[in-house]
Protein backbone atom coordinates (compact mmCIF):
# COMPACT_ATOMS: atom_id res chain seq x y z
CA UNK A 1 0.00 0.00 0.00
CA UNK A 2 2.76 2.43 0.85
CA UNK A 3 4.33 1.67 -2.50
CA UNK A 4 1.20 2.85 -4.28
CA UNK A 5 1.12 6.07 -2.24
CA UNK A 6 4.75 6.77 -2.96
CA UNK A 7 4.18 6.04 -6.63
CA UNK A 8 1.30 8.53 -6.78
CA UNK A 9 3.43 11.20 -5.14
CA UNK A 10 6.24 10.68 -7.62
CA UNK A 11 3.83 10.49 -10.52
CA UNK A 12 2.21 13.79 -9.60
CA UNK A 13 5.61 15.49 -9.32
CA UNK A 14 6.61 14.10 -12.68
CA UNK A 15 3.40 15.42 -14.27
CA UNK A 16 4.00 18.85 -12.79
CA UNK A 17 7.52 18.90 -14.14
CA UNK A 18 6.39 17.78 -17.60
CA UNK A 19 3.62 20.36 -17.83
CA UNK A 20 5.60 23.29 -16.50
CA UNK A 21 8.62 22.25 -18.52
CA UNK A 22 6.60 22.10 -21.72
CA UNK A 23 4.98 25.48 -21.19
CA UNK A 24 8.22 27.15 -20.19
CA UNK A 25 9.82 25.66 -23.29
CA UNK A 26 7.09 27.12 -25.49
CA UNK A 27 7.34 30.56 -23.94
CA UNK A 28 11.12 30.45 -23.66
CA UNK A 29 11.47 29.36 -27.28
CA UNK A 30 9.38 32.32 -28.43
CA UNK A 31 11.37 34.80 -26.41
CA UNK A 32 14.76 33.42 -27.35
CA UNK A 33 13.94 33.62 -31.04
CA UNK A 34 11.81 36.74 -30.99
CA UNK A 35 13.69 38.85 -28.50
CA UNK A 36 15.89 40.55 -31.03
CA UNK A 37 12.97 41.57 -33.22
CA UNK A 38 11.18 43.39 -30.40
CA UNK A 39 11.28 47.15 -30.71
CA UNK A 40 9.37 50.06 -32.11
CA UNK A 41 10.35 49.17 -35.65
CA UNK A 42 8.60 45.81 -35.25
CA UNK A 43 5.33 47.66 -35.00
CA UNK A 44 5.90 50.77 -37.05
CA UNK A 45 8.46 49.61 -39.59
CA UNK A 46 10.31 52.57 -41.04
CA UNK A 47 7.44 55.00 -40.47
CA UNK A 48 7.74 57.47 -37.57
CA UNK A 49 5.39 56.16 -34.85
CA UNK A 50 3.57 59.45 -34.41
CA UNK A 51 2.76 59.72 -38.11
CA UNK A 52 1.46 56.17 -38.10
CA UNK A 53 -0.72 56.75 -35.05
CA UNK A 54 -2.16 59.92 -36.56
CA UNK A 55 -2.84 58.00 -39.76
CA UNK A 56 -0.68 60.40 -41.74
CA UNK A 57 1.35 57.70 -43.34
CA UNK A 58 0.89 54.04 -44.06
CA UNK A 59 2.97 51.49 -42.26
CA UNK A 60 4.31 48.95 -44.69
CA UNK A 61 6.63 46.54 -43.02
CA UNK A 62 5.39 46.73 -39.44
CA UNK A 63 2.68 45.16 -37.33
CA UNK A 64 0.79 48.42 -36.83
CA UNK A 65 -2.13 47.54 -39.14
CA UNK A 66 -2.49 44.13 -37.49
CA UNK A 67 -2.42 45.64 -33.99
CA UNK A 68 -4.93 48.31 -35.03
CA UNK A 69 -7.11 45.66 -36.64
CA UNK A 70 -7.09 43.47 -33.55
CA UNK A 71 -7.85 46.42 -31.28
CA UNK A 72 -10.81 47.62 -33.34
CA UNK A 73 -12.07 44.07 -33.70
CA UNK A 74 -11.95 43.44 -29.95
CA UNK A 75 -13.53 46.81 -29.13
CA UNK A 76 -16.42 46.23 -31.53
CA UNK A 77 -17.03 42.64 -30.46
CA UNK A 78 -17.08 43.60 -26.78
CA UNK A 79 -19.43 46.48 -27.62
CA UNK A 80 -21.95 44.03 -29.07
CA UNK A 81 -21.46 41.25 -26.57
CA UNK A 82 -21.40 43.04 -23.20
CA UNK A 83 -24.87 44.65 -23.13
CA UNK A 84 -26.53 41.61 -24.61
CA UNK A 85 -24.61 39.11 -22.50
CA UNK A 86 -25.13 41.01 -19.25
CA UNK A 87 -28.83 41.46 -19.94
CA UNK A 88 -29.21 37.75 -20.68
CA UNK A 89 -27.22 36.85 -17.55
CA UNK A 90 -29.37 39.11 -15.41
CA UNK A 91 -32.50 37.58 -16.87
CA UNK A 92 -31.28 34.06 -16.18
CA UNK A 93 -30.24 34.82 -12.62
CA UNK A 94 -33.02 37.14 -11.50
CA UNK A 95 -36.15 36.68 -13.58
CA UNK A 96 -36.30 33.30 -15.28
CA UNK A 97 -38.49 30.63 -13.76
CA UNK A 98 -36.98 27.18 -13.28
CA UNK A 99 -38.31 25.71 -16.53
CA UNK A 100 -37.35 28.57 -18.83
CA UNK A 101 -34.00 28.70 -17.07
CA UNK A 102 -33.30 25.03 -17.72
CA UNK A 103 -34.08 25.43 -21.43
CA UNK A 104 -32.09 28.64 -21.88
CA UNK A 105 -29.18 27.16 -19.91
CA UNK A 106 -29.03 24.28 -22.36
CA UNK A 107 -28.76 26.68 -25.29
CA UNK A 108 -26.06 28.70 -23.59
CA UNK A 109 -24.14 25.53 -22.80
CA UNK A 110 -24.25 24.48 -26.44
CA UNK A 111 -23.30 27.99 -27.52
CA UNK A 112 -20.33 27.98 -25.15
CA UNK A 113 -19.17 24.64 -26.49
CA UNK A 114 -19.36 25.43 -30.19
CA UNK A 115 -15.98 25.26 -31.94
CA UNK A 116 -14.95 28.73 -33.02
CA UNK A 117 -14.55 27.64 -36.63
CA UNK A 118 -18.25 26.74 -36.68
CA UNK A 119 -19.08 30.20 -35.37
CA UNK A 120 -16.86 31.62 -38.11
CA UNK A 121 -18.67 29.54 -40.68
CA UNK A 122 -21.96 30.90 -39.36
CA UNK A 123 -20.65 34.46 -39.70
CA UNK A 124 -19.57 33.71 -43.23
CA UNK A 125 -22.92 32.11 -44.08
CA UNK A 126 -24.74 35.18 -42.75
CA UNK A 127 -22.52 37.44 -44.86
CA UNK A 128 -23.26 35.39 -47.97
CA UNK A 129 -26.94 35.43 -47.15
CA UNK A 130 -27.01 39.21 -46.67
CA UNK A 131 -24.99 39.69 -49.82
CA UNK A 132 -27.47 37.75 -51.91
CA UNK A 133 -30.60 39.10 -50.28
CA UNK A 134 -29.85 42.73 -49.71
CA UNK A 135 -26.75 44.30 -51.03
CA UNK A 136 -23.71 43.30 -53.00
CA UNK A 137 -21.74 45.72 -50.82
CA UNK A 138 -21.88 43.30 -47.89
CA UNK A 139 -19.11 40.77 -47.79
CA UNK A 140 -16.98 39.33 -45.00
CA UNK A 141 -15.60 42.37 -43.18
CA UNK A 142 -14.74 43.90 -39.83
CA UNK A 143 -18.41 44.25 -38.88
CA UNK A 144 -19.27 40.62 -39.63
CA UNK A 145 -16.13 39.41 -37.84
CA UNK A 146 -16.85 41.43 -34.75
CA UNK A 147 -20.42 40.16 -34.60
CA UNK A 148 -19.27 36.56 -34.99
CA UNK A 149 -16.71 37.09 -32.22
CA UNK A 150 -19.43 38.64 -30.07
CA UNK A 151 -21.44 35.47 -30.59
CA UNK A 152 -18.40 33.45 -29.57
CA UNK A 153 -17.90 35.28 -26.25
CA UNK A 154 -21.55 35.97 -25.47
CA UNK A 155 -21.96 32.81 -23.37
CA UNK A 156 -18.82 33.70 -21.35
CA UNK A 157 -20.30 37.04 -20.38
CA UNK A 158 -23.78 35.65 -19.78
CA UNK A 159 -22.43 32.85 -17.63
CA UNK A 160 -20.12 34.99 -15.52
CA UNK A 161 -22.89 37.54 -14.95
CA UNK A 162 -25.36 34.84 -14.04
CA UNK A 163 -22.95 33.05 -11.72
CA UNK A 164 -21.83 36.23 -10.01
CA UNK A 165 -25.43 37.20 -9.32
CA UNK A 166 -26.48 33.74 -8.21
CA UNK A 167 -23.49 33.58 -5.92
CA UNK A 168 -24.71 36.50 -3.84
CA UNK A 169 -26.01 35.44 -0.43
CA UNK A 170 -29.70 35.73 0.31
CA UNK A 171 -29.00 38.43 2.89
CA UNK A 172 -27.46 40.70 0.25
CA UNK A 173 -30.47 40.08 -1.92
CA UNK A 174 -32.91 41.02 0.82
CA UNK A 175 -31.27 44.16 2.16
CA UNK A 176 -32.48 46.62 -0.43
CA UNK A 177 -35.81 44.84 -0.90
CA UNK A 178 -36.54 45.27 2.79
CA UNK A 179 -35.94 49.00 2.34
CA UNK A 180 -38.59 49.27 -0.33
CA UNK A 181 -36.51 48.75 -3.45
CA UNK A 182 -38.26 47.40 -6.50
CA UNK A 183 -36.85 44.34 -8.22
CA UNK A 184 -35.11 46.45 -10.84
CA UNK A 185 -33.74 48.92 -8.29
CA UNK A 186 -32.38 46.02 -6.29
CA UNK A 187 -30.63 44.62 -9.37
CA UNK A 188 -29.24 47.89 -10.66
CA UNK A 189 -28.24 49.54 -7.40
CA UNK A 190 -27.22 46.62 -5.22
CA UNK A 191 -26.89 43.22 -6.87
CA UNK A 192 -24.96 44.17 -10.01
CA UNK A 193 -22.54 46.49 -8.16
CA UNK A 194 -21.88 43.76 -5.59
CA UNK A 195 -21.14 41.18 -8.25
CA UNK A 196 -19.17 43.55 -10.42
CA UNK A 197 -15.84 41.84 -9.78
CA UNK A 198 -17.10 38.58 -11.21
CA UNK A 199 -18.76 40.26 -14.16
CA UNK A 200 -15.77 42.42 -15.05
CA UNK A 201 -13.30 39.57 -14.82
CA UNK A 202 -15.58 37.63 -17.15
CA UNK A 203 -15.55 40.52 -19.58
CA UNK A 204 -11.78 40.71 -19.46
CA UNK A 205 -11.48 37.00 -20.18
CA UNK A 206 -13.87 37.56 -23.09
CA UNK A 207 -11.57 40.31 -24.36
CA UNK A 208 -8.67 37.89 -24.22
CA UNK A 209 -10.68 35.32 -26.12
CA UNK A 210 -11.53 37.88 -28.82
CA UNK A 211 -7.93 38.97 -29.13
CA UNK A 212 -6.54 35.46 -29.55
CA UNK A 213 -9.20 33.89 -31.74
CA UNK A 214 -8.05 33.04 -35.22
CA UNK A 215 -10.58 30.54 -36.53
CA UNK A 216 -13.56 32.89 -36.49
CA UNK A 217 -11.85 35.74 -38.24
CA UNK A 218 -10.18 33.68 -40.93
CA UNK A 219 -13.62 32.87 -42.30
CA UNK A 220 -15.12 36.30 -41.84
CA UNK A 221 -12.89 38.85 -43.46
CA UNK A 222 -9.35 38.98 -42.12
CA UNK A 223 -6.64 39.27 -44.76
CA UNK A 224 -2.88 39.15 -44.64
CA UNK A 225 -2.24 42.63 -45.90
CA UNK A 226 -4.56 45.59 -46.31
CA UNK A 227 -3.40 48.30 -43.93
CA UNK A 228 -5.29 49.92 -41.10
CA UNK A 229 -9.05 49.15 -41.27
CA UNK A 230 -10.85 52.02 -43.01
CA UNK A 231 -14.46 51.25 -42.19
CA UNK A 232 -16.74 48.68 -40.65
CA UNK A 233 -17.28 47.14 -44.06
CA UNK A 234 -13.65 46.81 -45.02
CA UNK A 235 -11.16 43.99 -44.70
CA UNK A 236 -8.64 44.21 -41.91
CA UNK A 237 -5.50 42.61 -40.53
CA UNK A 238 -5.19 40.96 -37.13
CA UNK A 239 -2.31 39.76 -34.99
CA UNK A 240 -3.27 36.10 -34.56
CA UNK A 241 -4.01 35.70 -38.24
CA UNK A 242 -0.69 37.35 -39.08
CA UNK A 243 1.08 34.79 -36.90
CA UNK A 244 -0.74 31.95 -38.62
CA UNK A 245 -0.07 33.40 -42.05
CA UNK A 246 3.63 33.95 -41.43
CA UNK A 247 4.11 30.44 -40.12
CA UNK A 248 2.91 29.04 -43.44
CA UNK A 249 3.94 31.68 -45.94
CA UNK A 250 7.10 33.36 -44.77
CA UNK A 251 9.60 34.04 -47.50
CA UNK A 252 12.60 35.36 -45.63
CA UNK A 253 14.07 35.44 -42.15
CA UNK A 254 12.91 39.02 -41.56
CA UNK A 255 9.30 38.06 -42.01
CA UNK A 256 9.78 35.08 -39.75
CA UNK A 257 11.34 37.32 -37.09
CA UNK A 258 8.36 39.63 -37.22
CA UNK A 259 6.16 36.52 -36.82
CA UNK A 260 8.00 35.72 -33.58
CA UNK A 261 7.61 39.34 -32.52
CA UNK A 262 3.87 39.24 -33.21
CA UNK A 263 3.57 36.02 -31.24
CA UNK A 264 5.32 37.61 -28.24
CA UNK A 265 3.08 40.67 -28.44
CA UNK A 266 -0.08 38.55 -28.60
CA UNK A 267 1.09 36.33 -25.76
CA UNK A 268 1.84 39.35 -23.60
CA UNK A 269 -1.53 40.96 -24.36
CA UNK A 270 -3.36 37.79 -23.39
CA UNK A 271 -1.34 37.16 -20.24
CA UNK A 272 -1.69 40.76 -19.08
CA UNK A 273 -5.46 40.57 -19.61
CA UNK A 274 -5.46 37.39 -17.57
CA UNK A 275 -3.50 38.92 -14.71
CA UNK A 276 -5.84 41.89 -14.80
CA UNK A 277 -8.89 39.64 -14.57
CA UNK A 278 -7.44 37.85 -11.56
CA UNK A 279 -6.44 41.06 -9.83
CA UNK A 280 -9.88 42.50 -10.43
CA UNK A 281 -11.74 39.50 -9.16
CA UNK A 282 -10.16 40.18 -5.78
CA UNK A 283 -9.96 43.90 -5.87
CA UNK A 284 -12.74 45.49 -7.84
CA UNK A 285 -15.48 45.19 -5.29
CA UNK A 286 -13.16 47.10 -3.02
CA UNK A 287 -12.43 49.86 -5.52
CA UNK A 288 -15.78 50.24 -7.20
CA UNK A 289 -17.93 50.25 -4.13
CA UNK A 290 -16.01 51.98 -1.40
CA UNK A 291 -16.37 55.43 -2.86
CA UNK A 292 -18.26 57.78 -0.59
Amino acid sequence: MRVLEQAVVHFSRLCGIILLGAVLTVIGYLFVHGWSSLGLSLIFGATPPLDALLMKRHVFNGLFPAVAGTLSLVALAICWAVPMGMAAGIYLAEYAGPKIKAILNLFFDIMAGLPSIVVGLFGFAVAVFLNRRFSGAIHPCLLISSMALAFLVLPYITRTTQMALEGLPLSARMTALSLGASRLQNIVRVLVPQSLSGIVSGIILAIGRCAEDTAVIMLTGVVASTGVPRSLLSHYEALPFYIYYISAQYTNSEELASGYGAAIILLCICLVLFLLAFAIRKRISYHALYRA
Binding site: L19, V26, L205, I243, S247, A263, F274
Partner: peptide, 22 residues
Amino acid sequence: RKAVEMMTGIPTVIYGFVGIFL
Protein backbone atom coordinates in the same frame (compact mmCIF):
# COMPACT_ATOMS: atom_id res chain seq x y z
CA ARG B 1 -2.39 26.84 -9.50
CA LYS B 2 -1.77 30.40 -10.67
CA ALA B 3 0.58 29.09 -13.36
CA VAL B 4 -2.04 26.65 -14.59
CA GLU B 5 -4.68 29.37 -14.61
CA MET B 6 -2.36 31.58 -16.63
CA MET B 7 -1.83 28.74 -19.09
CA THR B 8 -5.50 28.78 -20.02
CA GLY B 9 -4.85 32.25 -21.40
CA ILE B 10 -2.14 31.29 -23.87
CA PRO B 11 -3.50 31.78 -27.42
CA THR B 12 -3.96 28.65 -29.53
CA VAL B 13 -2.11 30.17 -32.45
CA ILE B 14 1.00 30.42 -30.25
CA TYR B 15 0.96 26.68 -29.64
CA GLY B 16 0.60 26.13 -33.36
CA PHE B 17 3.40 28.55 -34.15
CA VAL B 18 5.85 27.05 -31.68
CA GLY B 19 4.68 23.62 -32.78
CA ILE B 20 5.75 24.26 -36.34
CA PHE B 21 9.20 25.51 -35.53
CA LEU B 22 10.05 23.46 -32.45
